[in-house]
Amino acid sequence: MGLYPAEIEAQAAAIVSTYRTRDWMIATAESCTGGLIAGALTEIAGSSAVVDRGFVTYTNQAKMDLIGVSAKVLEVYGAVSRETALQMAHGALMRSDAFVAVAVTGIAGPGGGSAEKPVGLVHLALKTRSGLIDHKEMRYGDIGRSEVRLATIRTALEMLSAAAQTLA
């Protein structure tokens, strides 16, 4: 048994297999998951053919410094927003050799939520070099920090799988 639940490892293994056959690399830009998406992918043997790099950008400063999220976007929309997630995906793609970048930013809890942005709110974005852009706003609810993070990993992996199917 690995570090992750069996279904996450199965999802990650399928992605590694599919992306390896297409010679596609992945970059991740992670806030609330702290590198766990990259970790799930690299749990799979042979993932070095698929995982280019991961950016853990937990602070706003890290988002700006490492992946070029604009201070204006952070000021106007906040770190947990569609706009920030899309800029994170774009920045990770531009600062990597990847074909696909997936980005996540959210509020895992237990604190930090508000009426407008409750605990369990996560924005995920995906961008490819071929121009595919995807965004999901997930409201997992106040289900516990670990469960929000695991749900976010599952959704990010689903987005990576869907991108491969869309671009088949």
Results as ranks from 00 to 15, higher is better:
residue 124 L to Q: 03
residue 108 A to D: 04
residue 87 Q to E: 15
residue 88 M to E: 04
residue 136 K to L: 09
residue 125 A to E: 04
residue 13 A to M: 04
residue 87 Q to C: 08
residue 89 A to W: 11
residue 117 K to D: 11
residue 84 T to H: 12
residue 106 G to A: 10
residue 89 A to I: 05
residue 81 S to Q: 02
residue 98 A to G: 14
residue 126 L to Y: 05
residue 23 D to I: 03
residue 80 V to E: 05
residue 45 A to F: 00
residue 77 Y to P: 06
residue 28 T to Y: 13
residue 27 A to H: 07
residue 120 G to P: 03
residue 67 I to Q: 09
residue 105 T to H: 07
residue 74 L to I: 15
residue 19 Y to A: 15
residue 32 C to T: 05
residue 48 S to D: 00
residue 149 R to L: 02
residue 165 Q to D: 10
residue 5 P to A: 09
residue 132 L to V: 08
residue 33 T to F: 13
residue 128 T to A: 11
residue 21 T to G: 07
residue 29 A to K: 09
residue 74 L to M: 13
residue 52 D to Y: 11
residue 48 S to Q: 01
residue 100 V to E: 04
residue 80 V to L: 08
residue 6 A to M: 07
residue 35 G to R: 09
residue 61 Q to H: 15
residue 27 A to W: 05
residue 57 T to L: 05
residue 95 R to S: 12
residue 66 L to D: 11
residue 123 H to W: 14
residue 75 E to M: 10
residue 160 L to G: 02
residue 19 Y to K: 08
residue 114 S to C: 03
residue 67 I to D: 10
residue 42 T to D: 05
residue 142 D to F: 04
residue 135 H to C: 10
residue 110 P to Q: 00
residue 3 L to R: 13
residue 89 A to E: 13
residue 146 S to L: 15
residue 156 A to C: 02
residue 136 K to E: 05
residue 64 M to R: 10
residue 68 G to T: 07
residue 93 L to K: 09
residue 112 G to D: 05
residue 138 M to R: 11
residue 21 T to N: 09
residue 148 V to S: 03
residue 165 Q to R: 10
residue 54 G to E: 09
residue 168 A to N: 14
residue 27 A to C: 14
residue 84 T to A: 15
residue 65 D to I: 06
residue 144 G to P: 01
residue 16 V to C: 08
residue 119 V to W: 00
residue 115 A to V: 00
residue 34 G to E: 11
residue 73 V to A: 13
residue 4 Y to F: 14
residue 42 T to V: 14
residue 28 T to E: 07
residue 96 S to G: 14
residue 46 G to Y: 00
residue 158 E to Q: 05
residue 51 V to Q: 08
residue 71 A to L: 14
residue 58 Y to C: 11
residue 163 A to E: 12
residue 18 T to W: 02
residue 93 L to C: 05
residue 90 H to P: 07
residue 72 K to V: 13
residue 13 A to P: 02
residue 108 A to L: 01
residue 54 G to L: 07
residue 63 K to M: 12
residue 26 I to H: 09
residue 54 G to F: 03
residue 35 G to F: 10
residue 71 A to G: 14
residue 118 P to Y: 02
residue 140 Y to H: 07
residue 61 Q to P: 09
residue 30 E to A: 06
residue 124 L to K: 00
residue 26 I to V: 14
residue 56 V to Y: 06
residue 125 A to V: 07
residue 103 A to L: 11
residue 38 A to I: 08
residue 151 A to Y: 04
residue 67 I to H: 06
residue 67 I to V: 15
residue 117 K to F: 12
residue 45 A to S: 00
residue 16 V to N: 07
residue 30 E to S: 06
residue 84 T to M: 06
residue 32 C to W: 09
